[in-house]
């Protein structure tokens, strides 16, 4: 964690984010994914049998990681301390802001892989299925908090604007830009 890579959170923000490991992020994200599965079941149809696979998401600039089984209404997300040894069908590692950019379609997964902004291991077929399902989901920040209507639009504008600023600040790759 001592080395700072392009797109990673600066040290001060990492320190500020450290207490996140003690928040009930896992249950909150589990609820969010299950809520999303009820609203957009087609996304999980696209994932098919791979919904039962486990995906370990490791933000390289945080001391926590997320273990997700995106099985529709039975989906589960666990928040883990980074040092915990955990096996999963698929592991994806990269800066937090870059990983969030994959969720909302800001970044192209292949381009991030070519540029080595993310690293992947495990079952490539499951990863490809998840990537394509997320691509089609058109996820927004409001989906995660269950906000709709005017409140949802406000959440989206605020979070997307904030993420854009943060990416510029941290030097995250931008679409089309050589690394």
């Amino acid at each position: 964690m001592a080395e700072h890579f392009r797109g990673e959170l600066p040290r001060l923000l990492r320190l500020l984010a450290a207490p996140a490991g003690f928040l009930p992020l896992g249950p909150a994200l589990t609820l969010a994914v299950r809520r999303f599965a009820r609203r957009k079941p087609a996304v999980f149809d696209r994932l098919g049998e791979y919904g039962k696979c486990s995906f370990l998401i490791e933000p390289s600039d945080l001391d926590i990681s997320f273990l997700m089984v995106p099985d529709g209404s039975r989906a589960e997300v666990k928040c883990l301390r980074r040092r915990a040894s955990q096996t999963a069908d698929v592991t994806v590692r990269g800066p937090l802001l870059v990983l969030l950019g994959l969720l909302d379609g800001t970044f192209d997964g292949d381009a991030l892989f070519f540029n080595r902004a993310i690293s992947v291991s495990g079952r490539t077929d499951a990863l490809v299925a998840l990537r394509n399902a997320i691509e089609d989901a058109e996820l927004t920040p409001a989906d995660f908090v269950g906000a709709t209507g005017g409140l949802g639009r406000l959440v989206d504008r605020s979070v997307i604007g904030g993420l854009g600023l943060a990416r510029r600040f941290t030097g995250s790759p931008i679409p089309g830009d050589p690394s």
């Binding site: 379609g105 800001t106 970044f107 192209d108 997964g109 292949d110 381009a111 990537r131 691509e135 679409p175 089309g176």
Partner: peptide, 14 residues
Amino acid sequence: RQRGKGYVAEVVRT
């Protein structure tokens, strides 16, 4: 076709 919509939008626009 295997690429994300971020790629599609950027390349098509360009």
